[in-house]
Nucleic acid binder design. Structure first.
Lengths: 271, 271
DNA sequence: AAGCATTTTTCGCACAGCGGAACTAAACTC
DNA sequence: GAGTTTAGTTCCGCTGTGCGAAAAATGCTT
């Protein structure tokens, strides 16, 4: 039973039967996670279905989360929504992220000067979460998508990250993707292999229409100052006004430059 | 032991010894909450101090949270940071918040036309969390403060919310504030009493320099469509360019109008 | 290199929390 | 408005999980 949840929950390397692992915490967070996009309100029943946990368990978890302000409840329809506590945590996360502050001016600059979208992301399980995002034209930065998730395997952002992950971790994640979306796996694996080569040869990787037909993007990896955290930085836009040529010739090198300025110095070439 | 945490954690009405309450979940979330503003990175030790939990417990909780992607770990200095999972949750929360979508155009409009700051917030324990925020001049909406917390007792946002809470809940919260910040309590209580009167007579409440010396703001309550969720909507700015007169005469009525348009119809006057 | 301080892991035990089943409440049907 | 379905809560015995004291490991200082 624990098995089931761990598989669903932990995409990371993890000794499967940790004595360290606090199951009820994981379950509670899984409940919060059930509130995905387009699933704004859920009843206990819905949550039970999505998480595979028994009704009494869900009942207790929602009770607890409600009590703590991470869920709100509407007696009208017996459904829960994510509460303000969750948002406060999200803010604390982003406010403490030094790379974001450092990157801000650079990405604003590039986004405006080239009229493209620039974004920074970090891996979360099999997705990438936007940490910051800057759009060229749309002066009203709706910033709606800070925190939103995109797939890891088909986007430039995800590929830049996957490519620079330790081999073991990448393989683990690819296996997980194969299990979960066997139909897309061919495409994903080829894309990642290509990304690795591209990063070696030209410093950035590409996703031209691989995520969405009409979106072109290039990505680069960025390492945190302590060298232990890996982010992706992308530059992209709709294909009708952002050609692959522009990306390859003009924006690619500029993005690589930014990534270098942001990243911790990785390794000095010996001697 | 449970007691201790409950007191610290649950500001809400809550039967003290619920069998429904899942302690380890609450503790785990308390760990995440320890990462406040200006506390971006914490070691197990720091967390133990802030939460009052024993070190082994923290160890297991951080292990679990790390595993699930809600924390990141730097082996370099043995410290944790909030991870991307947390941000993804925050986004899910805000994306599912219908009042925010409905409010957006109205607050943008007012913020721009009067060059003031407009914000929507919801209570979280003894704070108010910004759900959305629009600033007049600063075209670059840094949106940094969606998710940030401000005090409940001294701000216009907090007062608008407190004033419209059921009496029991308000009293509970005031008691909690008295315990936690006895020195400010006089000011808080007077402010809330005044807010209640102001809302009755003029439809909006005020905080002129009560939160920060040089900030003036007025606030109104907003009810969610199902009538079960209470938000605050404020209009404010630095006192040097936003006079109390402008707020009282011009912006007050406009804010009240917006709140009416946003709120669910509360009660029909009988007959 | 030894000593000190801090952090992590171990271990046995108590009890927290799990799930099946029964119970209650509410919504829908006709 | 009684019957049927569906959703949520309560009960309860059992299991396994998460707790804290103390040991072990790690890192830092002198």
């Amino acid at each position: 039973m624990t098995r089931r949840l761990r598989e669903a929950a932990a995409q990371d390397l993890s000794g499967s039967q940790d004595r360290q692992f606090v199951t009820s915490l994981a379950r509670g967070l899984e409940v919060l996670r059930a509130f995905g996009p387009g699933e704004a309100t859920l009843g206990n029943q819905d949550i039970a279905e999505r998480t595979g946990l028994s009704k009494p368990t869900i009942s207790r978890l929602t009770h607890t989360l409600l009590d703590l302000g991470y869920l709100t409840y509407s007696a009208r329809n017996g459904r829960y929504q994510l509460g303000p506590g969750v948002l406060a945590l999200g803010y604390a996360m982003i406010a403490g992220l030094e790379v974001r502050q450092r990157a801000r001016p650079m990405i604003e600059d590039l986004a405006a000067s080239a009229n493209v979208t620039i974004a920074i992301g970090e891996r979360d399980r099999l997705n990438v979460v936007y940490l910051d995002c800057c759009r060229g034209t749309q002066t009203v930065a709706l910033s709606l998508n800070v925190g939103s998730r995109i797939p890891l395997g088909t986007t430039a952002l995800g590929r830049a990250i996957l490519a620079k992950l330790p081999d073991g971790e990448r393989e683990y994640l690819l296996r997980a993707m194969r299990e979960r979306m066997p139909e897309d796996f061919q495409k994903i694996e080829r894309g990642v292999d290509r990304a690795i080569r591209e990063l070696d040869t030209q410093g950035f990787c590409t996703s031209f229409g691989d995520w969405r037909e009409d979106v072109n993007a290039i990505g680069v990896p960025v390492f945190s100052l302590d060298g232990e955290r890996l982010f992706g930085l992308i530059c992209g836009g709709p294909s009708f006004n952002l050609s692959t040529d522009t990306l390859m010739e003009d924006l690619g090198p500029r993005l690589v430059k930014i990534a270098q300025d942001l990243s911790a110095p990785r390794e000095m070439a010996a001697t």
